[in-house]
C-alpha cells in the first residue's frame, strides 16, 4: 500500500492523543516529552549527519535558539505554544542556513568546528541578553486558558487537555512523528540520494552534476529548523529557562549518540536510538546521578562508533542478510 506509512503516522498521532486523555499519571507525560524531544533532535541531526556526513556539534545551540525565540516572543507578544513552535523553527532554520552558507564551501570538519563555535557564541550572547533573562534565567508562566481557532486548548474542565503537561506531550509527539516522516521522505527523495552521494565522495558527486552546496544548504536549514522546533516548547515545559538548561551538554551529546547508536543510514536509527537511550536515561536518572548517566552515553557512543559503525539498525540488517544466505 502506497500510503501505509502515512496512515501509521496519523494513527500514532491519534494514539498519542488518546493516551493524553486516558492516562492519569502526569509523570509519564513529563518524561515522555523529553524522550520525544530527543527523537526530534536525533532525527534532525541525522538528516545532515547521517545522510550527508556533516557533523553538527552545536545541536544544543539550535535547540536553544528555538527555546529563546519562544521566550523573546512570549515576552514581546504573549504568543501561544503552536506559534512559538513555528517561530522557533523558522529562526533556527535561518540560523542553520547562515551557518551552512558561511562554512559549507569548506571541508566538513570546519562545519563541525563552526557549529561548536556557534553554540558557545550564542550562549554568551544569551547570557548577556537581559530581555530573555540573561545568565540568571527567567521563569515562564504558561498562558492561562489558551485558545487555538477559538477552541479552548488547556483547561481543567472545558479544554481539550486538562493541563499543560498533556498538551506539551501531544504537541511534541506530533512534532516527532512529522519529523520522522520528513526524514523518511528525504531519505527516499532526490535530496537524500544527493546527500548520500556527498557523504561518499563530495568531489565525485560534484562531477556528476549533484548541486552539492544547494543540497547541503537545504539540509542544514531543515535540520536546524527541526532542532529549533524541538527546543521551542522547552521554556513552557520547564516553566523556567536559563542558558545552562537550554544549552545543556546532554542535548549536544545525545543528538549525536542517539543516531550513531541507532544507526545513521535509515530514519529508523535515530528513532530507535532516542527510544532506547532516552528511556534508559530518564528511568535511570531516578536512582543514579546524571553525570554517571552521561558518562554511560559517552562510552556507548565510542564503543558503537568503533565496533558497530552502522548502529543497531545496521547490525540488525546484517544479521538478516546473513540468515538469508
Amino acid at each position: 500500500m502506497k500510503y501505509l506509512f502515512e496512515i501509521v503516522c496519523v494513527l500514532l498521532i491519534i494514539g498519542i492523543f488518546v493516551l493524553t486523555q486516558v492516562v492519569g499519571n502526569q509523570f509519564y507525560f513529563f518524561i515522555g516529552f523529553v524522550i520525544l524531544q530527543y527523537m526530534v533532535l536525533a532525527t534532525a541531526w541525522n538528516i545532515l549527519g547521517g545522510y550527508g556526513g556533516y557533523v553538527n556539534f552545536g545541536s544544543a545551540g539550535f535547540l536553544a535558539t528555538g527555546a529563546y525565540t519562544s521566550v523573546a516572543l512570549i515576552n514581546f507578544l504573549d504568543i501561544g505554544l503552536v506559534e512559538q513552535i513555528i517561530a522557533g523553527g523558522a529562526i533556527a532554520g535561518l540560523l542553520g542556513f547562515v551557518t551552512g552558507y558561511l562554512t559549507l564551501r569548506l571541508r566538513g570538519v570546519y562545519f563541525a568546528i563552526a557549529t561548536l563555535a556557534l553554540a558557545i557564541i550564542l550562549e554568551t550572547v544569551v547570557a548577556h541578553w537581559d530581555y530573555v533573562g540573561g545568565a540568571a534565567g527567567t521563569s515562564i508562566l504558561p498562558k492561562r486558558k489558551p485558545e487555538l481557532f477559538d477552541i479552548m486548548v488547556v483547561d481543567r474542565k472545558t479544554g481539550i487537555f486538562a493541563n499543560y503537561k498533556e498538551f506539551l506531550f501531544f504537541l511534541m509527539g506530533t512534532v516527532a512523528i512529522i519529523s520522522v516522516w520528513i526524514a523518511r521522505y528525504i531519505e527516499n527523495s532526490k535530496l537524500g540520494r544527493g546527500l548520500n552521494a556527498i557523504k561518499d565522495s563530495e568531489e565525485a558527486a560534484e562531477c556528476m552534476g549533484v548541486p552539492t552546496l544547494r543540497l547541503k544548504l537545504i539540509a542544514t536549514t531543515i535540520s536546524g529548523a527541526m532542532m529549533g522546533v524541538a527546543g521551542a516548547p522547552l521554556a513552557s515545559y520547564l516553566t523556567f529557562i536559563d542558558p545552562l538548561s537550554a544549552f545543556n551538554l546532554e542535548y549536544a551529546v545525545n543528538a549525536i549518540a542517539m543516531p550513531m547508536i541507532g544507526g545513521t543510514v535509515s530514519w529508523m536509527g535515530p528513532v530507535i536510538g532516542a527510544l532506547l537511550l532516552g528511556t534508559a536515561q530518564q528511568v535511570s536518572s531516578l536512582w543514579i546521578q546524571s553525570e554517571l548517566n552521561l558518562l554511560i552515553v559517552g562510552v556507548l557512543l565510542v564503543i558503537f562508533v568503533i565496533i558497530a559503525p552502522e548502529g543497531i539498525v545496521g547490525w540488525f540488517r546484517k544479521s538478516r542478510k546473513g540468515s538469508r544466505g
Binding site: 549527519g49 556526513g53 557533523v55 556539534f57 566538513g108 570538519v109 563541525a112 557523504k199 551538554l249 551529546v253 549525536i256 549518540a257 550513531m260 545513521t264 546521578q289 553525570e291 554517571l292 552521561l294 558518562l295 552515553v297 559517552g298 562510552v299 557512543l301 565510542v302 562508533v305 568503533i306 559503525p309
Partner: peptide, 30 residues
Amino acid sequence: NAFEKSGAESLRGLAFFFGLLFIIEVGLII
C-alpha cells in the same frame, strides 16, 4: 585501526573524539 585505515575518518572519527572529550569531561566531574 578503527577509522583511518578504512577511510571512514570524517564522520565516525569526529564522533569518536567527541565521545572521548565527553568521557574525560564527565569523568573529571565525577
